[in-house]
Amino acid sequence: MGRLLILAIGLAAAWLVWSGLFKPLIFGLGALSLVLVLWLAIRMKVTRYGSFSLDLAPRLLGFWAWLLKEIVKSNLTVARIVLSPRMNISPRMVTVEPPTRGLQGQAILANSITLTPGTVTVDAHDGTFKVHCLTEEGAADIERGEMARRIHKAVGDR
């Protein structure tokens, strides 16, 4: 119920910010869409399975800063590879089992791996990740699992 309320407030705020108009017609249409989206959310059981956990965001701030640094670093690496006349790639597929057992932690990890250029999560199933890496160094980084450890520290088994 609390989650539904947060969703309703967020949606209403989004509508007001977007339209910026306070005419009765626009307002009524907004209320109508709000009710429709809330009904859809209940039907989709969005609120029951905890698809949005805003309380995780503050705990992930430090991780995001670290992730941004990693993204910049690997961007430069991949850009150098693409621009070199003989592209020096050594593609690898590594299989890892990260320590995070929770679904949200695994989703964050899979998306963070994909977000970093040079590594793409190809398959995440039953806690086993198959990651395609552009270079051997990237594969070694994934196998060392520092990203997984940081996420596990921040999120736990959520």
Partner: peptide, 19 residues
């Protein structure tokens, strides 16, 4: 355009999507 196969191309694409 340059990369040899689908998965390596995806690494290049994520370059444009992030930084």
């Amino acid at each position: 355009v340059r990369m040899p196969d689908l998965y390596t191309r995806m690494h290049a694409t994520s370059l444009t999507d992030t930084l």
